[in-house]
Simulated scan of single mutants.
Amino acid sequence: MVGKFSSTFAVFTVAVFISSLDYINTNPAIATGYDPLEICIENCALCKKMLGAWFEGPLCAESCIKYKGKLVPECEDYASIAPFLNKL
């Protein structure tokens, strides 16, 4: 009984692994490469959703364009979003 369970589990694990490889190979982000400008702008939008009126989204996006995505804001890192916060 234990042997049958182990072999079934092994087959299942291999099947999941193979299907995940297929997903990795067809993932558009991996297929097209890493675009820091796109990631920067997406993070600006995410921070705007999280912080609302406290966060200056357009200013963040302008910074992404100006620095070509080299300064990516992280919504939970105060130092990276401090320039885009307002006091309301």
Rank of each mutant, 00 (worst) to 15 (best):
53 A>S: 10
38 E>S: 12
80 S>M: 02
50 M>S: 07
49 K>T: 13
57 G>V: 02
61 A>Q: 09
79 A>V: 07
5 F>G: 08
13 T>M: 09
78 Y>E: 07
35 D>S: 06
59 L>R: 09
64 C>M: 05
66 K>L: 02
46 L>A: 13
77 D>M: 08
72 V>Y: 12
62 E>V: 14
69 G>M: 02
74 E>D: 08
62 E>R: 15
38 E>H: 12
55 F>T: 05
28 P>D: 07
22 D>W: 11
57 G>T: 02
16 V>T: 14
75 C>E: 06
46 L>K: 13
3 G>L: 00
9 F>C: 13
83 P>Q: 11
23 Y>N: 08
57 G>E: 08
19 S>L: 15
43 N>H: 14
66 K>Y: 15
86 N>C: 08
49 K>D: 14
46 L>M: 09
53 A>P: 06
5 F>M: 04
85 L>W: 10
36 P>N: 01
60 C>A: 08
55 F>N: 13
45 A>E: 14
36 P>Y: 14
39 I>E: 00
42 E>M: 15
21 L>Q: 00
76 E>D: 12
6 S>P: 09
72 V>F: 01
46 L>Q: 12
49 K>Q: 11
70 K>N: 06
4 K>G: 14
51 L>F: 06
80 S>G: 10
72 V>D: 06
36 P>F: 03
59 L>K: 04
41 I>A: 15
58 P>D: 03
76 E>H: 12
42 E>T: 08
70 K>G: 03
7 S>E: 14
63 S>T: 15
27 N>L: 07
8 T>Y: 14
16 V>G: 11
61 A>D: 01
29 A>Y: 05
53 A>W: 15
40 C>T: 03
5 F>I: 05
40 C>K: 00
25 N>R: 11
42 E>V: 15
80 S>T: 12
38 E>T: 00
66 K>N: 01
49 K>F: 13
4 K>L: 04
66 K>I: 03
70 K>R: 05
10 A>Y: 15
14 V>D: 02
53 A>N: 06
21 L>W: 05
4 K>W: 05
46 L>R: 14
64 C>A: 03
87 K>S: 15
46 L>S: 10
10 A>M: 12
59 L>Y: 11
62 E>M: 09
59 L>C: 04
54 W>I: 13
54 W>N: 09
49 K>R: 13
81 I>N: 05
49 K>Y: 04
70 K>W: 03
65 I>Y: 06
29 A>D: 07
22 D>I: 06
59 L>P: 09
51 L>N: 03
21 L>D: 03
52 G>M: 04
13 T>F: 14
52 G>E: 13
80 S>C: 13
37 L>S: 01
8 T>I: 07
68 K>G: 00
47 C>W: 01
27 N>R: 11
71 L>T: 10
10 A>Q: 13
53 A>E: 13
17 F>H: 00
14 V>Y: 09
81 I>L: 05
45 A>W: 10
4 K>F: 04
23 Y>I: 14
19 S>F: 15
74 E>Q: 07
79 A>N: 08
51 L>P: 08
34 Y>V: 05
6 S>M: 12
34 Y>E: 00
54 W>A: 10
51 L>K: 07
16 V>P: 12
33 G>E: 03
40 C>R: 01
45 A>S: 15
32 T>C: 03
38 E>W: 05
35 D>I: 10
84 F>W: 10
49 K>M: 12
83 P>I: 01
24 I>L: 06
15 A>Y: 09
55 F>E: 15
